[in-house]
Write a protein that binds this DNA or RNA. Structure first.
Length: 418
RNA sequence: GUGGGAGUAGCUCAGCUGGUUAGAGCUCCUGGUUGUGGUCCAGGUGGUCGUGGGUUCGAGUCCCAUCUCUCACCCCA
C-alpha cells in the first residue's frame, strides 16, 4: 500500500468543513482590518530563504525540501511565508504604489522535522504583513489582529509574550556584551550553544538545558542596550496594547528563531496545545526588504499555524458547519430511476441539497440512509406516482407522508422553510 | 537528528506462559412477508496480525532488522 508521506495528512470530508469555516472566518476578519490577500508560488529559489530567513537558522540549514531541477536551478518548497511575500512586494514594486501595504495570506508550508503533536512536515499557516510603517501603531495592529482572531474563535488560555530585541546597532552591541559574559562559561556550554556562540549568541538565551538556564540567569539583558528610539518605540507599543485591552507579558529573553526580526517580537501561546504551544509568532523586520534587494522599508507581521489552531479548537466543541443533505430522493422501480435523477437536478437548481441512490437499493435501505444523513425530507416515487404525476413527500422528523402533485412540489418544499 | 510508547477488520480493542480454520463491539451491507426509516432481531462483507528475515515440528505471540504512527527532546506556527 502506498501511504501518504511521513508527516503529511489527508483531510477527509468530516474535517474539511471545519477548515473551510476557519478559512471563511479569516477572510472576513482580515477584510475588516482592510488587508488584501496575497498568494505566492508553492516553491521559490533556494537563495531567497538563505538570504531572507538566515543561513544559520535550523529551518534553512536542515529542514528545507530542496532540489535542483532539470535546468540546474536550485529550488525549495516554501518553509515560511514572510520571505516570499517580501520578494513579491519588491518584485511588483508595491511600495511605490502606496505608502502602506497591508497583506494577508493562508498557505501550505514544508519543513522536514520529526513529526509530533502540533508539528507536521506539510503544515498550514495564515498570517499578515504590513509594509511601510515604522510606527508602533503598525506593531500594535498586527498584534491585535492575531490576538483578537484567536479570542473571537473562543480559544482560551491565551498568553501573549512580548519583547523588543532592538534595532541593528543595539543588537550588535548586545551580541558583543553577551559573548563577553558567556566566554568564561564556554567550556560548560553544549556543542550547539558553542556553535551559536560564534554565529548567533542570542539564540543561546532560548536554551532549554537546565544548567545553561542557570548561566543565562545573570546574563546581561537586552533592554539595557536598547537605544532611546528603540525604548520609546517599545513603550508606545505596550501602551497601545494596554489601550486596546490586550494583555501581555514581557519576556526579555524570548528570541525568535528567524534571523530577520528587529525591535518588536511576540508569540501567542495556548496551554491547551502541549509541547508545541505556539499558536502564532511574529514581529518587526525593518531590514528584510533591504536585505532582499528592495528599497529600505519597515515592516511587521505574524504567522499562525492552522493545525495548532484546530487542536486548540478541538478542546472546545467544534462543529463542522457543513450542511447536511436535506432531501433524499427514493425511486421504487426501474421505470422511475431516470425521473429521480431529473427531479434531483431540478431541485438542486432551486437551491435544495439533494441526494439520490446510486446502488439501486431497497426502500428500507434508502430510508435508513436518509435517516442516517439526517435528511429532513424523503421524496418517494413509485409507478403510481409516475402515472398520476405525483410524488410522495415524507417528513423524516414526524414520519408523516403526503401525496403532492409534482407541479406544486417546489412550492410545497419552499413553504416548509428548512 | 536523539529518546520513550505503540502497530491485530473501516474504527476502538481482546488474543494467558508460542499449539488447530484469528475474535468482540461499533460501522457497513442484506433480510425480518407483497412499497416505508430511527429501536430491536438475524445473517453477511471485511484481516497476507505494519513489512522483511530468523529461531521452532509449529509464531499474532520469541529474536533481529526495517517502516509507520505517537509523545517528548530539539525547533517552531
Amino acid at each position: 500500500m502506498i501511504r501518504s508521506v511521513k508527516g503529511t495528512h489527508d483531510i477527509l470530508p468530516d474535517k474539511t468543513g471545519l477548515w473551510r469555516k476557519i478559512e471563511t472566518a479569516l477572510h472576513s476578519f482580515m477584510h475588516k482590518y482592510d488587508y488584501g490577500e496575497i498568494r505566492t508560488p508553492i516553491f521559490e529559489k533556494t537563495e531567497l530563504f538563505k538570504r531572507g530567513v538566515g543561513e544559520e537558522t535550523d529551518i534553512v540549514s536542515k529542514e528545507m525540501y530542496s532540489w535542483t531541477d532539470q535546468g540546474g536551478e536550485k529550488l525549495t518548497l516554501k518553509p515560511e511565508l514572510t520571505a516570499p511575500v517580501v520578494r513579491s512586494f519588491i518584485q511588483h514594486n508595491l511600495g511605490s504604489q502606496s505608502a502602506v501595504n497591508r497583506l494577508y495570506y493562508m498557505d501550505a508550508l514544508f519543513r522536514r522535522e520529526r513529526p509530533q503533536k502540533g508539528r507536521t512536515r506539510q503544515f498550514h499557516q495564515f498570517g499578515a504583513e504590513v509594509f511601510g510603517s515604522e510606527h508602533p501603531e503598525a506593531d500594535a495592529e498586527i498584534i491585535a489582529i492575531s490576538y483578537n482572531f484567536f479570542k473571537n474563535l473562543g480559544i482560551g488560555n491565551l498568553t501573549l509574550t512580548l519583547n523588543s530585541i532592538g534595532s541593528d546597532d543595539c543588537r550588535n552591541n548586545y551580541r558583543n556584551e553577551l559573548r563577553k559574559y558567556l566566554k568564561p562559561f564556554s567550556s560548560n556550554l553544549t556543542e550547539t550553544s558553542q556553535n551559536r556562540f560564534k554565529k548567533n549568541p542570542l539564540r543561546i538565551l532560548d536554551t532549554k538545558i537546565e544548567h545553561e538556564k542557570e548561566i543565562i540567569k545573570n546574563a546581561p539583558e537586552i533592554d539595557n542596550f536598547l537605544t532611546d528610539d528603540d525604548k520609546s518605540h517599545f513603550e508606545e507599543v505596550k501602551s497601545l496594547l494596554n489601550d486596546l485591552s490586550i494583555p501581555f507579558v514581557i519576556d526579555s529573553q524570548m528570541v525568535r528563531g528567524l534571523d530577520y526580526y528587529t525591535r518588536t517580537t511576540y508569540e501567542i501561546t495556548s496551554s491547551v496545545l502541549g509541547a508545541q504551544d505556539a499558536l502564532c509568532g511574529g514581529g518587526r523586520y525593518d531590514k528584510l526588504v533591504e536585505t532582499l534587494g528592495g528599497k529600505p522599508t519597515p515592516a511587521v507581521g505574524f504567522a499562525a499555524g492552522i493545525e495548532r489552531l484546530l487542536l486548540a479548537l478541538e478542546s472546545k466543541t467544534a462543529e463542522s458547519g457543513d450542511k447536511v443533505i436535506q432531501i433524499n430522493i427514493i425511486g421504487l422501480t426501474k421505470k422511475v430511476r431516470s425521473k429521480c435523477q431529473v427531479l434531483a437536478q431540478e431541485l438542486r437548481g432551486k437551491g435544495f441539497s439533494v441526494s439520490t441512490d446510486l446502488l439501486r437499493r431497497s426502500l428500507k435501505s434508502l430510508l435508513r440512509e436518509a435517516n442516517r444523513n439526517s435528511a429532513r425530507i424523503a421524496i418517494i416515487i413509485g409507478d403510481d406516482d409516475l402515472a398520476n404525476n405525483t410524488v410522495q413527500v415524507k417528513d423524516m422528523g414526524t414520519g408523516e407522508q403526503i401525496t403532492i402533485i409534482k407541479n406544486t412540489l417546489i412550492e410545497h418544499l419552499t413553504d416548509l422553510d428548512f
